[in-house]
Simulated assay, not measured.
Amino acid sequence: MAQLVRSNLPTLQKTASYYVVHVTVAALVAYAVTGNFLLAITLSLLEPTVQAVAFFFHEKAWQRWGSRPAAAASASTGVVA
Score class of each variant (00 low, 15 high):
H58A: 09
S7G: 13
V79D: 06
K60L: 15
L46T: 15
L9T: 10
V25R: 01
G35A: 04
N8R: 10
P69C: 05
K60V: 15
S7A: 08
G66W: 03
L43M: 08
P69W: 05
T34V: 02
S67P: 01
I41K: 00
R64V: 11
S74Y: 07
Q51K: 09
V20M: 10
T49V: 10
G78F: 12
V33Y: 08
L39I: 14
S74I: 03
P48A: 02
E59I: 06
N8C: 07
T24G: 06
V50A: 12
S17M: 09
A61E: 07
A30G: 08
S74C: 10
T24I: 00
L12Y: 11
A27F: 12
F57C: 02
L46H: 04
V29H: 04
V29F: 07
A40N: 03
H22K: 04
T11E: 10
Q51C: 11
L39K: 10
E47P: 00
S17Q: 10
A70P: 01
S7K: 15
F55H: 12
S76H: 09
K14H: 11
P10D: 05
A32S: 12
W65Y: 15
S44Y: 02
F55G: 02
V80E: 06
W65F: 14
T15N: 06
Q3Y: 09
A54W: 12
L38W: 12
Q13H: 06
S67Q: 13
V25Y: 05
L45K: 02
A70H: 06
A26F: 14
L9C: 00
V29R: 03
V21T: 07
R6P: 00
M1E: 08
V5N: 08
F56H: 04
V50L: 15
I41F: 11
G78R: 07
G35L: 04
A32M: 07
A72E: 15
A70L: 14
T11P: 00
F57A: 01
E59T: 14
A81T: 08
M1C: 06
L4K: 11
A75V: 07
L28A: 12
A73W: 10
T24F: 02
L38G: 09
K60H: 05
M1V: 12
A27Q: 01
A81D: 07
S17A: 10
V29W: 05
W65T: 08
T77C: 03
G78E: 07
A32P: 03
V29K: 04
T42R: 01
L39C: 00
Y19D: 00
N8G: 06
P48M: 02
M1T: 11
Y31D: 03
E47T: 14
V79C: 00
A70T: 13
G66H: 03
Y18T: 13
A32H: 09
A61G: 05
Q51F: 15
K60T: 13
L43Q: 02
N8H: 15
S7Q: 14
V33C: 03
A52V: 03
R68S: 09
